[in-house]
């Protein structure tokens, strides 16, 4: 079982290597780390403590900490969605820490099993079902970063390259003929 200390070490090292800081409030930080530990215990992966997981690695991949949205969120708002990772300015108190809007698309939050949701968001639900079906048929694509060569296999390219921080626009699909 992962301990709180192991979770702390992991996120501290991730923050250091990416130029981020952890939430400056020790009590909030402890709660967030405990949330990650709990999610790892119940889902086998540390999904974001502030988002509802589907308990399926495939569907939750984008919200596994550090989530796909962290880099653009810290960049734009000074903190990630759950406020675990913050910028230097927020850490030093120059910018107040506030809740930020959810960047994750709404259709990704609708589980494939939620039937009634489709009635209310017909278009998005259809889109979500289509994308889930696609991935289950292994219809995912290969993308590479044109700046550093990083390659990933997923439905869409990441917001930022996890290696060199190039923006999404620099990703291109790999086509194998």
């Amino acid at each position: 079982m992962t301990t709180l200390e192991e979770v702390r070490q992991r996120v501290e090292s991730d923050a250091k290597s990416n130029g981020y800081y952890l939430n400056p409030d020790p009590e909030v930080l402890r709660h967030l780390l405990e949330g990650l530990r709990k999610n790892e215990e119940r889902y086998d992966y540390p999904s974001c403590p502030c988002r509802l997981a589907f308990e399926s690695f495939e569907l939750d991949r984008d919200i596994i900490c550090p989530c796909d949205y962290r880099d653009p969120d810290v960049d734009e708002y000074g903190s990630c969605y759950c406020s675990l990772f913050v910028s230097k300015d927020v850490f030093e108190g120059k910018i107040p820490l506030k809740p930020i809007p959810e960047r994750r698309p709404n259709e990704k939050q609708i589980g494939p099993h939620i039937k009634s949701a489709k009635a209310f968001t017909k278009t998005t639900a259809v889109k979500a079902t289509a994308s889930i079906r696609k991935s289950s048929e292994r219809g995912m694509k290969l993308f590479y970063c044109r700046q550093c060569g990083y390659v990933c296999f997923r439905e869409e390219p990441p917001y930022l390259c996890p290696i060199c921080k190039a923006k999404r626009e620099l990703f291109a699909e790999v086509t194998i003929s």
Binding site: L52, E102, N106, Q109, I110, H113, I114, S116, A117, F120
Partner: peptide, 15 residues
């Protein structure tokens, strides 16, 4: 599912 339906029915986001 009940919560999801309730939030969407009211035009909210699923967060």
């Amino acid at each position: 599912e009940e919560v999801t339906a309730d939030i969407l029915r009211r035009g909210g986001r699923l967060s």
